[in-house]
């Protein structure tokens, strides 16, 4: 097994305690930092996402895998050089105003980050002007992901999407929505660009949106 394969296996198994040493060993052996990131980590997390969607693994396994990747990236980061080349974009993530639920948003945030995005996680109960400020104040943002768990906060999602659609920066970012009561129909109705039913799908969708 190559060092990069070992890294991928460690990410998939969520081995946070050993990932740093493995990444350092791969660097010491001369492996390319971008290959470590793309093959050893991002591809590994893609496999984790597939297994989650098939219910071969569940949220705890996905969380520890994402955390392991984060630890590995900490070691890798100084070696990546041109950060622009290493990321596929920047995502702003948050749960809409009035909604305190965080687990869905956290999972999306972790999976999008694991797909190679830089993430600005605004947290829960995020006012629409915070979303607008986050996209207008950062030219790197190309995806915005909004979460709502409650039927009562669906109107807040609608208002947030309307505000983002009216933003002067609208041409350079796409809007993705998700959460228990959210449907593809609701996504279309409120003028968002994409719907994701779960965190793994959100990561895949974010990559597609970033390329669009």
């Amino acid at each position: 097994m190559t060092k990069i394969q070992e890294i991928a296996a460690a990410v998939e198994a969520g081995k946070s305690k050993i990932i740093g040493e493995l990444v350092q060993a791969a660097l010491d052996e001369g492996a390319a930092p971008l290959e470590i990131l793309n093959v050893g980590m991002i591809d590994a997390m893609s496999i984790v996402g597939d297994k989650f969607q098939k219910e071969e693994i569940f949220i705890p396994e996905m969380l520890v895998a994402a955390r392991a990747m984060k630890k590995g990236v900490e070691v890798l980061q100084p070696h990546l050089g041109d950060a622009e080349a290493a990321t596929v974009g920047k995502a702003v993530v948050g749960t809409v105003s009035g909604d305190l639920h965080d687990i869905g948003k956290n999972l999306v945030s972790m999976m999008i980050e694991s797909a190679g995005f830089e993430v600005n996680d605004l947290g829960v109960d995020v006012a629409l002007n915070q979303f607008v400020a986050a996209v207008e104040g950062d030219e790197k943002v190309n995806v915005v992901a909004l979460s709502a768990l409650l039927t009562t906060t669906m109107p807040a999602m609608k208002e947030t999407v309307a505000a983002l659609n009216a933003s002067k920066a609208r041409g350079r970012f796409k809007i993705m929505v998700g959460g228990a009561p959210i449907t593809p129909e609701f996504c279309k109705e409120i003028g968002a660009d994409a719907y994701a039913p779960d965190a793994a799908s959100a990561a895949q969708k974010a990559k597609e949106l970033a390329k669009a």
Binding site: G14, I59, L63, V64, D102, I103
Partner: peptide, 12 residues
């Protein structure tokens, strides 16, 4: 612990 840390604790 919150959902994220609680779920990680279950695994680890």
């Amino acid at each position: 612990m919150g959902f994220t840390e609680g779920l990680i604790a279950l695994q680890e």
